[in-house]
Design a protein around this nucleic acid. Structure first.
Lengths: 110, 110
DNA sequence: GTAGAATATATCCATATGGCTATATAGCTA
DNA sequence: TAGCTATATAGCCATATGGATATATTCTAC
């Protein structure tokens, strides 16, 4: 679905949201923890989190009083796959590497 | 620069612009050629091209009467590198692959 | 059940974005 | 130089986005 790519790329186009993902790469965090590094209002952060969640980049949990967020890697993989189609344009050794990967995967499927 | 990532991700969040990049992956093309598949006005396409160019994703040339566009892979590599930091979250074999790549690069530097 | 903590939702505002039409600019070709 | 082709720029409009403040919701603790 193109829609997914739209939402994911759009969500990633904001530095606050990328920083939030960076923080979540270290593990789950509450809204308050995520808001802490920024000089933004709490509702502004909640809005950013909503954008990230609707793009599928994060997920909300529930723990007592709080709703911790965790990274959802599948969405990142989605755009990584999209970009992979262009890899040959900048990575000269890509073709050979690709060959190698096919072989590795062959072995792994034992 | 964060600004670069902002501009690149933002440019990629539009399906028309991604389709234009897809076309340019087959080689350079004039504005008219790029506009052809879409039911958009010519100025709308020119605007999209401007966004792509300001993000560094394409470049303009000049050839007689026309200003052909070409892909500029460096910008795509920029975000590929950004995403690579998250690769370990979805690709279990990443660490081993990474080891392999270091070795290959070692040989290539002969 | 009342108070406090954590978070979400409702408005509101200013700016950005994507589309259109009309017009300007630049380079060929006669 | 005049006209044609290719493309860019100028306005204009509707909608989206990112921020703020005020308020609602949901738990927890007492």
């Amino acid at each position: 679905m193109d829609n997914k790519l739209d939402a994911i790329f759009s969500a990633l186009s904001d530095p606050t949201r990328r920083a939030i993902l960076g923080r979540l790469a270290n593990g789950k965090a509450t809204v308050a923890e995520l808001a802490d590094p920024f000089e933004l209002s709490q509702p502004a952060i909640s809005k950013h989190l909503k954008v990230l969640e609707q793009a599928g980049l994060i997920r909300s949990g529930r723990e007592a009083n709080s709703r911790p967020r965790v990274l959802e890697p599948a969405a990142l993989k989605t755009i990584a796959d999209w970009i992979a189609d262009y890899r040959r344009f900048w990575d000269q050794s890509f073709d050979r590497l690709d060959d190698y990967l096919s072989k590795v995967q062959g072995y792994e499927n034992d």
